[in-house]
Structure formats: C-alpha cells, structure tokens
Amino acid sequence: MRQGPRRPRNAVIASALLCVLVALGGPPTLTPGAQAADDTDDPSAEVQRLYEQASAATQRYEEGRRAAAAQEAKAQRAELLLARERGEMAALHADLGRYARAQYRSGGGIPITLRMLLSDDPDALMHGQRAAWQADLALNNAVDKSRRAERELADGERRATAAWHALQADNVRLAELKQTIAAKLETARAKLQGEADQSVAAGRCRGAVRLDQPELRTTRAWVPPVDTYVLSAGFDSAGAHWAHRHTGQDFAVDIGTPVRAVGSGRVVSVSCGGAFGIHIVLRHPGGYYTQYAHLASAAVEQGEEVRTGQWIGQSGTTGNSTGPHLHFEVRLTPYLGSGIDPVPWFAERGVTL
C-alpha cells in the first residue's frame, strides 16, 4: 500500500477500501440555487466542529507526550549527575580521612610549638606546616563546594521529577478529553452518514452544507483532495468488487474528513444516488475534470466557483462503498469512462501522493 506524505491523526482504515462501479446511468443532479441546509443541529457542522476539536486535542496530547518524554530525560540526567556528585563526595571524604591519618602519623597530634622546639630544622618544619595547612584548606574547600553542588543537584532533581509527574498527570487528562471527543465524533459521524444514506436512497441531495472554511495558506495551484490519508485502491487495478477495472484513486479517510478542491475551477455537478453516492464533479482550467465520490455531504452547489484547497464536502461511504474513503478521479470529460491515472497527473503538477 502506498502512503501519503503524512499519517492521519485519527485512526484510518488500513485495509484496501473498494468502490463498486456500475454502468453509465446518470444520477439525478442538484438543481442550481437549491436551499442550503440549516447549520442548527446539523450533523455536518457537528462533525466538522468535533473533527477540529479532535485534531486540536490530538496535537496537544502529542505535544504533552513529547514534553513529558523530554522532562523525563532531564530528570534522569539530573539523577545521574547527582549520583556522580555523591561519588565524588565519597572520594573527597576518603581523601580527607587519609590526609588526617597521615598527619597523625607524622606528628600532627603534637602541638606545633613543641614540634618546633624538638625539631633540628624549625624553618623546614614551618614550611612543611604551611604546605599542610594549605592542602588542608584546599581539601576542606573542595568538600564544601561538593556539598553545595550536591544540594543544588538534589534540588534540581526534585524539581525535574515533579515537573515530569505533573506533565504525566496533564497527559492523562488530555487522553481522557481526547477519548471523550472521539466518542462524540463517532456518534456525530454515524448521524451524518445516516442522513447521507437517506439522501442517496431518495436520489436527492439535501443542499449544500456550508462548512467553516479554514484559512487557506497555500500558494500552490494544486493540492491532494484530503489533508491526511492512506492510499488504498489505485487506478486501473483489478478487483472482484467492480465490473471493470478501477477508474480512480482511493484515499482511506474517516467519515466526515474535509474534502478539498485539488485546484481552482467550477462545480459541474453535485449528485446523489447510484454507485458513487453523493459526488461532486469540478471542471478546471485546461479542460480537466475531477470527481469526488462516496461523500457524506456536499458543501458546494452546481455552477459555483471554487479555489484551490477549498473544502467542498465531507468524506463518507455512500453508494457502492465497502468502507469510509474518498474515491477520486481525474477525467478528460465530466463523464465516467474518460478517467486517467491521478498519481502521475498530480506528479506532473508538483504534487506527490
């Protein structure tokens, strides 16, 4: 299976999703100017809202997970530094003990005045005593410095560990929030798909559901039809689930995933019913047409101008579909049977699927 440039944030069906194509019978077309559906309690708007919340929650959770991992590594480094400092402290204490014993063996327990009176060379004795005092002072300073460093490292270790535990607790709450949103999203998706199936069964679209469009930041003339995906059934592939060979490229995505126009153009048709379920056909400059099939909703109307990257609908599993996915075609005419392979077509336009 070929994969897209980014993995989906939500769980995506990994198995190949097949769409069944039948003869050329033309499904009914939405008449221009049809009344747009009210967003109040609309499953399309609810799915879009929850989809965005789920994406944001997933992003926050992943950021928190990475931050917790980094903080854990910081706490482990602090622990290693503290262990090393304690080892150096033990070595210094051992040196101090050896020095004290050496002083005692060399007469360190006798008062310096008496040792000078008994010495054959008082000047040499004083010189040696000054060196001993300096060594003793340096050793004591090193011990004091090491003790301060140990206290600072222990304090840093406590702070790092506390921050790690706090991040872990936040991630638990984020995971619970993520699960709650995911459960609501699944319920809303089921409702959206149910209404879409009713529209297809009736052979009449319910009208354009106007989605809140994202800020379009791309300057590219062409983009993939969905933001995150896994490629499944490819163009001209054989399969037992369609009468002839596959006429497009399938993108495995969840129900309700925003579907976008791959390039600027005009809406040729918005249709319901038949093998493709809810589907949209766009005409682009240069004479090419693109089709977006098995949708759960359409966000545009016939005759409407669209921009590159504009959300034109939501993915689903309407029509002859074995699971949620987007069936995408590039055609030389608006009609089935004139399709060409979308992968090299995109590649020629600088888009790698």
Rank of each mutant, 00 (worst) to 15 (best):
312 I>H: 08
335 Y>C: 01
254 D>G: 13
59 Q>E: 09
7 R>E: 10
191 K>H: 14
74 K>S: 11
351 V>A: 01
75 A>R: 06
300 V>L: 02
330 V>P: 09
332 L>Q: 12
53 Q>Y: 00
36 A>D: 08
313 G>H: 08
68 A>S: 14
302 Q>Y: 03
268 V>L: 03
31 T>F: 09
319 G>S: 09
17 L>I: 15
22 V>C: 01
37 A>M: 10
37 A>W: 05
310 Q>I: 03
99 Y>M: 12
121 D>C: 04
175 A>F: 02
267 V>N: 09
20 V>F: 07
305 E>A: 15
193 Q>L: 15
269 S>E: 07
327 H>A: 02
231 L>Y: 10
188 A>C: 03
236 D>A: 12
89 M>E: 11
144 D>F: 10
217 R>W: 01
224 P>T: 02
234 G>C: 06
263 G>C: 07
307 R>L: 08
162 A>P: 02
80 L>E: 15
211 L>E: 08
255 I>L: 06
145 K>W: 09
14 A>I: 01
143 V>Y: 02
26 G>T: 11
83 A>I: 09
353 L>K: 00
142 A>E: 13
92 L>R: 12
127 H>E: 15
42 D>S: 12
178 K>G: 01
168 Q>E: 14
350 G>T: 03
251 F>L: 01
351 V>H: 03
278 I>Q: 15
185 L>I: 07
160 A>L: 09
336 L>V: 14
259 V>L: 01
78 A>E: 12
122 P>E: 00
75 A>Y: 02
170 D>G: 04
175 A>S: 15
348 E>T: 06
352 T>L: 08
46 E>Q: 15
130 R>G: 08
297 S>M: 06
29 T>W: 08
335 Y>G: 06
174 L>G: 00
151 R>P: 06
245 R>G: 02
49 R>F: 04
301 E>D: 11
47 V>A: 03
140 N>Y: 05
265 G>V: 08
268 V>T: 08
43 P>A: 11
293 A>H: 04
198 Q>H: 04
77 R>I: 07
190 A>S: 13
161 T>H: 10
